[in-house]
């Protein structure tokens, strides 16, 4: 016996996986780190262009560029975390030949890495905006972070559930990717929900992603007219329920997951 405690083994595996995954994500291919930023930035550039055409400079009381950046960063944090974690088992299959590495480790590490990458991206973008001359100091920084972290947690919980679900029902990931596309449009990321009639908006507000995205904007400026019914705790409640579901599924099917 190696004499290491389980916690000790888990932590050294997490460290090893995190460094390996980070090296690959940032330097695995030519300028891989630039591509990480390029995806949200290309959406941003295209959308600012569209808003410029319709001559909309302000959404809900804040500058459209800020409005878009916050929405895109928030939504991409959610989607990328869920995506990365959902695929963690498949892409690390070979590593499970090392007895110490469990699928759970691979899933968790990917979520943490994605959160860190998006946080760095967020900071970078903010700095650039400040250099260009935008006022980037949020009125309620904790609320912005609360929305950001909540979206990450929601993405992570969903990612765990998808990763585990993929072992039980093969098609889980396909269904998940199919749902992500419409979610982008109905989460108020690029299309303000205030433009939706109230009776339909109530339905859209059931989507927890909206609450995270709107909280980030409302936290940025107290003047922002967020969608009615904005409730950050609803986002966290959804995230924690999903997390409980994911963990329960993992525990229940641990044997099947760990022999894939």
């Amino acid at each position: 016996m190696s004499g290491r405690s389980s916690t000790h083994i888990m932590l050294s595996v997490w460290k090893a996986l995190l460094l390996r995954e980070a090296t690959f994500r940032l330097f695995g291919t030519r300028a891989a780190w630039a591509w990480l930023l390029l995806e949200p930035l290309s959406h941003f550039a295209f959308l600012t262009f569209l808003f410029a055409i319709v001559r909309q400079r302000v959404v809900g009381g804040i500058d459209v560029a800020i409005w878009l950046i916050l929405g895109l960063i928030g939504f991409f944090t959610f989607r990328r975390t869920a995506n990365q974690m959902g695929g963690a088992i498949d892409s690390n299959l070979a590593l499970f030949t090392y007895r110490q590495v469990l699928p759970f480790d691979a899933i968790v590490v990917r979520g943490v890495l994605e959160g860190l990458i998006m946080l760095v991206a967020f900071i970078l973008v903010t700095l650039v905006m400040a250099l260009i001359g935008y006022d980037v100091v949020p009125d309620r920084p904790l609320m912005v972070l609360g929305g950001f972290f909540g979206l990450w947690l929601l993405g992570g919980s969903l990612g765990l559930a998808v990763a585990v679900g993929g072992v039980i029902v093969e098609e889980t990931r396909q269904i998940f990717s199919m749902l992500m596309m419409p979610l982008y449009f109905i989460s108020g990321v690029i299309f303000p929900l205030s433009a939706v009639p109230p009776q339909y908006r109530e339905i859209l507000m059931l989507n927890p992603v909206v609450h995270g995205v709107e909280a980030m904007r409302a936290g940025f400026s107290t003047y922002y007219h967020a969608s009615d019914g904005l409730d950050l705790s609803y986002l966290y409640l959804c995230a924690l329920c999903l997390l409980a579901l994911g963990l329960t599924l993992y525990t229940r099917f641990a044997k099947a997951i760990e022999t894939t």
Binding site: S12, A16, L17, L19, R20, T23, Y98, V101
Partner: peptide, 18 residues
């Protein structure tokens, strides 16, 4: 991992072995 060097791969294994 193909895009990592032999040394980086080796270090990874050292880490998971504690």
């Amino acid at each position: 991992q193909g895009s990592l060097t032999g040394r980086q791969n080796a270090k990874f294994v050292c880490r998971i072995q504690g």
